[in-house]
Design a protein around this nucleic acid. Structure first.
Lengths: 189, 189
DNA sequence: CAAACAAACTAACAAGTGTTAGTTTTTGTT
DNA sequence: AACAAAAACTAACACTTGTTAGTTTGTTTG
């Protein structure tokens, strides 16, 4: 367990700023001011602004990729797998709210790593969709358009980062359970 | 019915570009190139870059505000009202996909009109929440956290702009019905 | 103490930013 | 054909952008 380096602090601060105004609207001078130093000093620790974005987004995307592989391979039914996906998003969004903002909103500003990111995202969505289709075939899930189901669930899960920080009172398990009920069982009696 | 002015064309083109890269990453030279003219020529029709953003966002926000007032005042039950809200989002997102991107992602770059926008948004969410709470009290809606219900629904509805353009094959009514079923009745059998 | 390293600094750059001023071209109307 | 209005142009501005070079300061370690 390595201790936090100066580079890590910069990336963490950058993620805070990116969340508020987006990657393009945050200047290296903004970032430096937030760190209490001058812009040029940042370059003792990082190679470029772009590198900061890359580190934020790619590490998260890889975490999602790794975890959904575990879920899809687990020996449970489809609805359980969906609940596990929900819990995964709640967990990551709770621990990385600022970084999730960049993942959701600034991925298109990736340069060299853009195609790699898109590969990971496509793969994630394909796996998600596969679970839903299996659930429909096994009659666990209502016979509806699988893409619409995934779209609806993913939209909510992708917005969690905006919402989770305000819910510190209730814990992550409560939120995941609540969300699973609403997304899976609906809201009417 | 006034015909489209040059200013309208510029705003429409700007919305397309803003959707792809966000307000901050689109330059006036980008916009001019997309219009086939030089950047300075834009200023024969618009006063500033900021004005373009304002026109895109505020007109949409006012439309939502006006329409939800009609819905909340309508003489129907709460679930019907929620279905009407879903249909409203589908309709506006279908007709203004690019503009919806700015509303969702670039509102924080509003300058003079930021506080007005926030007022409209707060009002919209308060009305939405009121409908959900009424539905819970009248036992139409499951007794769950109303904020989580609204958050979940709004997340999906706010993402529609990303998704609706790919669904040109099925019409807006189909999509609204599908979504209403999934969001209200859930996905399990 | 001295050497080595980490982390800050000042100063500057080349390119890109939104915008203005003044001028020319295009279009439509009489 | 003549004129006005609309819409484009060139040129430039003041400022901001990410980044580099070279230097100084502070801290750790032999």
């Amino acid at each position: 367990m390595k201790s936090e380096t100066r580079k890590d602090e910069i990336i963490k601060t950058a993620a805070e700023l990116f969340k508020e105004k987006g990657y393009s609207a945050v200047t290296m001078r903004d970032l430096a001011t937030a760190m209490g130093i001058k812009a040029a000093s940042l370059y003792n620790h990082i190679n470029s602004k772009q590198e900061i974005l890359k580190e934020i987004i790619i590490s998260l995307a890889e975490e999602f990729t790794k975890e959904i592989e575990v879920i899809v391979s687990s020996n449970t039914n489809s609805l359980d797998k969906l609940s596990q996906i929900i819990a995964l998003h709640v967990k990551i969004s709770t621990n990385n709210a600022n970084e999730m903002a960049s993942l959701n909103n600034d991925w298109m500003h990736l340069e060299d790593q853009l195609s790699y990111y898109l590969k990971l995202r496509d793969n994630y969505e394909a796996t998600f969709l596969k679970i839903i289709k299996e659930g429909i075939m096994s009659s666990e899930i209502k016979k509806a358009n699988p893409e619409i189901i995934m779209f609806s669930m993913l939209s909510t899960l992708r917005s969690l980062y905006l919402w989770v920080p305000n819910k510190e009172d209730s814990n992550a398990n409560d939120l995941a359970n609540n969300l699973s009920k609403i997304l899976i069982q609906g809201i009417n009696k």
